[in-house]
Simulated assay, not measured.
Amino acid sequence: MDQDLIVSIGQRALEMTLLLSMPVLLATFFVGLVVSILQAATQIQEMTLAYIPKVITAFLVIFFLGGWMLMKLVDFAKEIFVNIPIWIR
């Protein structure tokens, strides 16, 4: 294994991490933004008020996109394991 291959595998792993985490992060970001705007408009400054909608949103995103996320992760792992004998030569 040369350095270029290791860097390439690491880069693909980071890309996969971003791809799998982005839906949850974006959804919770937008829900947090909406809750913050509502808190500012109503002057309710309860810090814990933003957590419950974010947690529910994260669970819903994982519930609806979890199958796709798991399929992408399994495909990536299969590709890594299948190519190990080729890379070791």
Rank of each mutant, 00 (worst) to 15 (best):
Met1Leu: 09
Met1Thr: 07
Asp2Glu: 06
Gln3Ala: 11
Gln3Val: 09
Leu5Met: 06
Ile6Val: 13
Val7Ser: 06
Gly10Thr: 05
Gln11Tyr: 07
Arg12Phe: 04
Ala13Glu: 01
Ala13Gln: 12
Glu15Ala: 10
Leu18Ser: 00
Leu18Gly: 14
Leu18His: 01
Leu19Glu: 13
Met22Gln: 00
Val24Gly: 04
Ala27Phe: 02
Thr28Gly: 10
Thr28Arg: 00
Phe29Ala: 11
Val31Tyr: 11
Val31Cys: 08
Leu33Pro: 05
Val34Gly: 08
Val35Gly: 02
Val35Asn: 03
Ile37Trp: 13
Ile37Leu: 14
Leu38Arg: 05
Leu38Pro: 07
Ala41Asn: 08
Thr42Ala: 10
Met47Lys: 08
Thr48Phe: 15
Leu49Asn: 00
Ala50Cys: 04
Ala50Asp: 00
Ile52Arg: 02
Lys54Ile: 09
Val55Gly: 09
Val55Thr: 10
Val55Ala: 13
Leu60Val: 07
Ile62Met: 05
Phe64Lys: 08
Met71Val: 02
Met71Gln: 15
Asp75Gly: 07
Ala77Gly: 09
Ala77Tyr: 11
Ala77Ile: 15
Lys78Met: 15
Lys78Ile: 12
Glu79Gly: 01
Ile80Trp: 08
Ile80Val: 15
Ile80Tyr: 07
Ile80Cys: 04
Phe81Thr: 10
Val82Asp: 15
Val82Gln: 06
Ile84Phe: 11
Ile84Gln: 03
Ile86Asn: 14
Trp87Tyr: 12
Trp87Ala: 09
Ile88Tyr: 07
Arg89Gln: 02
